[in-house]
């Protein structure tokens, strides 16, 4: 009889193992950046101790939109219509405001067919984590340029992109998103910190993850290949996320670190790297993106955060309980109310 002690499996603060956060086996290409994003989601939701069945996953159509099947199997998921995940997520979140909503889309989904829904999602500041797995290319239809491809980028077949790109982060900052970040699927630590910040943030989080397509957009001349992004990635700052359930260590303020307190009491500690950048300054955020484009740099980090703006539930003055769970006594007015209206119409 073996007496070898089996080490206890690691559990998080709500007693779940990481297995409870896994998804199905990916069917995306080997090396696809999207798989890294799915892995980070699994890790971060586990570490934050989010109950998986309180999460709702949404996507549109495309390679990226397949990925909600590859994380959090214990969460409900809705693979919806191309470019229209924002509307489905909006309806679902308004029906049940206790859900934690996460949308995963791509650049075709968001910046082309779904740009209208994306823009109007921004205006509402609905609490939602909106991830764009951005590779500048249509993968599932084999390599056409997308609307986030850089001007002058070359396609695998040698074609030149002569259209200006849409910068989803710039749009997000300008039109109402209250957390806007850009990161790189290969930067594990930064992506984790940003995802955690988004989980703690009460409002719309736009996370543009440059996520290279190894099959159709990883060649010389591409501005979204692994090599190009590694070369041109300029982190704005070093991010440290301290969750509300951890004891915050006192750190001596040195003028190089800015703290942003989030709605649930968590703290995002932003340590400056070279430049003086304040992510709560909207105009600075817009400027840094324009400057980066001119300099052919990919600036990453938390570009903008506003922890004070009204969210959509407040705008609509909604009850605290989920609409979906309201009892009939609250949703069907009494007979006297109908009789009164009938009397007025006589």
């Amino acid at each position: 009889m073996s007496t070898t002690a089996v080490p206890p499996k690691k559990t998080n603060r709500i007693g779940l193992e990481v297995l409870s956060y896994k998804g199905g086996k990916t069917t995306l290409c080997a090396g696809c950046g999207h798989n890294s994003v799915s892995e980070r989601i699994v890790e971060v939701f586990f570490e934050m101790g989010i109950q998986p069945w309180t999460v709702a996953k949404f996507s549109g159509i495309g390679c990226s939109s397949k990925s909600p099947a590859y994380f959090l199997n214990l969460a409900h998921g809705f693979n919806s219509v191309h470019g229209r995940a924002p509307s489905v997520a909006t309806g679902a979140m308004l029906a049940n405001r206790n859900l934690m909503g996460i949308v995963v889309t791509g650049d075709g989904d968001t910046a082309s067919i779904g740009i209208g829904q994306f823009m109007h999602l921004l205006r509402r500041n609905l609490p939602l984590i909106y991830i764009i797995e951005d590779n500048g290319v249509y993968g599932l239809t084999k390599g056409q340029f997308s609307a986030t491809s850089d001007y002058g980028a070359k396609s695998k077949g040698g074609g030149l992109n002569e259209m200006h790109k849409l910068d989803c982060c710039l749009l997000g900052i300008e039109h109402g998103a209250t957390l806007v970040a850009r990161t790189f699927s290969g930067d594990k630590k930064q992506l984790q910190a940003i995802l955690k910040t988004a989980i703690a943030h009460k409002g719309l989080s736009i996370i543009d993850v440059i996520s290279p397509c190894t099959t159709f957009n990883d060649h010389p001349g591409s501005t979204m290949s692994y090599a190009y992004v590694k070369d041109h990635d300029i982190p704005l700052h070093e991010l440290n996320f301290i969750p509300h359930f951890d004891e915050i260590q006192v750190e001596i303020a040195d003028g190089e670190t800015q703290e942003v307190t989030l709605h649930d009491g968590s703290v995002l500690r932003v340590k400056k790297l070279g430049r003086d950048y304040d992510p709560t300054d909207k105009m600075a955020a817009i400027r840094v993106l324009h400057e980066a484009e001119a300099a052919q740099e990919v600036v990453t980090g938390v570009l903008y955060i506003d922890t004070h703006a009204k969210d959509y539930f407040e705008t609509l003055n909604m009850v605290d309980a989920p609409l979906a769970a309201l009892p009939e006594g609250l949703t069907r007015p009494a007979k006297a109310a109908l009789d009164e209206i009938m009397e007025e119409l006589r």
């Binding site: 309806g91 308004l94 209208g116």
Partner: peptide
Amino acid sequence: VVQAEDELASIGMVIGASWAGA
């Protein structure tokens, strides 16, 4: 009540809300 950006979004929201139980 949401005044959506178009009818495509309206029905998307309705499907989402119904799916979530409203």
